[in-house]
């Protein structure tokens, strides 16, 4: 029996349901594709779990797909036409991302405390799934969560992108300019005295001639760590001309957007560069900070719902970037916490 779809005929004439139908058909076709990815499956579960309406419409479309299986007996003359034609434009141009356009517009009430987090996780996921379009033009080079990549730049310098990171390039005969849009990157810069190498982040800049350094966007501020050579870090102080700070090998520096560079610190190079060797090194951080660090390499969110924040021991250790969930389990176990995972997206420690 097929259900009529009452929401298609709502008296107020809203069209939310059209979007749900489109999304449900998208999901049916992807679920039937036989090459569904882990991420898509997780996104589907979040979507499917998000509302009664989603489940009802999906059920209608799923049954329809099953009935289509009975068209098989019909011979089809199409087999003799191998020629491909350009696909005609349809209204859902970006199939797997289309239903991300208004993720907050899902009908229905907020049901539980977790609802907010679910929506947040859903948003985060869709941002990751969508590789362009949602956030303006695609960056020149980017990595997904949990992925690292090395890119050779036009001048031969190398950039190594850590998890969930993105850069844009502006190369001309006066400068080699890189903008760090998100995440963290290590730059191995080839010397070129005619064209300084500049990394812009949050209105500030790190400039090098020939050196190796890491720039990371973290909690709204920018951290520059130098492993070889020297880097000049500049950032404007409240509209004043930019102030600069020279940072040498083994040192680090931090600035907030619109603020001047802070004092030079001694860098913990082993920890800061660990990701380049596939490790996450944590040295005496609070449990919460340590989880935040691990969270960078996981899709979704880690929530710490703990009784006594001050009761936890500081965390130290080296973890495998390829096995972050196991690291979270290990941390939880040593702190007497239990781990709950929801749809592979939200990890709760309590």
């Amino acid at each position: 029996m097929q259900n009529a779809d009452p929401e298609n005929h709502r008296p107020d004439g809203t069209t939310d349901d059209d979007e749900v139908v489109i999304a449900a058909r998208d999901w049916v076709v992807r679920l039937a594709s036989k090459d569904l990815t882990e991420r898509e499956l997780q996104a589907f579960k979040v979507w499917h779990g998000a509302s009664e309406a989603h489940r009802r419409v999906f059920e209608t479309e799923r049954r329809f797909w099953q009935r289509l299986g009975r068209l098989v007996a019909e011979p089809d003359t199409a087999e003799t036409v191998p020629e491909a034609e350009p696909p005609s434009p349809t209204r859902h141009i970006r199939p797997m991302r289309g239903h991300g356009r208004r993720p907050g517009a899902a009908p229905g009430r907020r049901r539980k405390i977790l609802a907010g987090s679910l929506v947040a996780a859903c948003l985060a996921l869709l941002v990751m799934v969508g590789d362009d379009g949602l956030l303006g033009p695609a960056p020149d080079h980017a990595t997904d969560v949990g992925v690292q990549r090395s890119v050779r730049l036009p001048d031969g310098s190398m950039v190594h992108l850590n998890t969930d990171s993105a850069i844009d390039l502006t190369y001309n005969d006066r400068e080699r300019a890189v903008t760090l849009l998100r995440g963290e990157a290590q730059f191995d810069v080839l010397p070129d005295s005619a064209r300084p190498f500049r990394v812009a982040a949050e209105g500030g800049m790190a400039e090098a001639v020939g050196t190796r350094f890491i720039v990371r966007l973290e909690d709204g501020s920018v951290r520059v760590t130098v492993s070889e050579g020297k880097v000049l870090v500049s950032s404007p102080a409240d509209g004043d001309p930019p102030r600069s700070q020279l940072v040498e090998a083994g040192q680090a520096n931090r600035y907030a957007p619109g603020g001047p560079p802070g004092p030079v610190e001694v860098a913990d190079l082993a920890s800061v560069t660990a990701w380049r060797r596939g490790k996450i090194r944590i040295d005496g951080l609070t449990l919460e900070r340590a989880l935040t660090e691990l969270d960078r390499y996981l899709p979704g969110t880690i929530l710490l719902i703990a009784a006594s924040e001050d009761g936890f021991d500081a965390v130290s250790g080296a973890f495998d970037i390829d096995h972050v969930p196991a690291a979270v389990d290990g941390l939880a176990a040593t702190h007497g916490l239990s781990v709950t995972r929801i749809a592979g997206l939200i990890t709760i420690l309590r």
């Binding site: 058909r25 998208d26 076709v29 992807r30 039937a32 594709s33 036989k34 090459d35 289509l68 299986g69 068209l71 098989v72 191998p82 491909a84 696909p87 005609s88 349809t90 859902h92 199939p95 797997m96």
Partner: peptide, 28 residues
Amino acid sequence: SRFDGLTQREIAERVGLSPTAVFKHIRK
């Protein structure tokens, strides 16, 4: 896709379209 048990990626290779285009055809 529906009857021959091919993945959308395999279909894409056979017909010389992108997987996204294959998806769109099925959706259409």
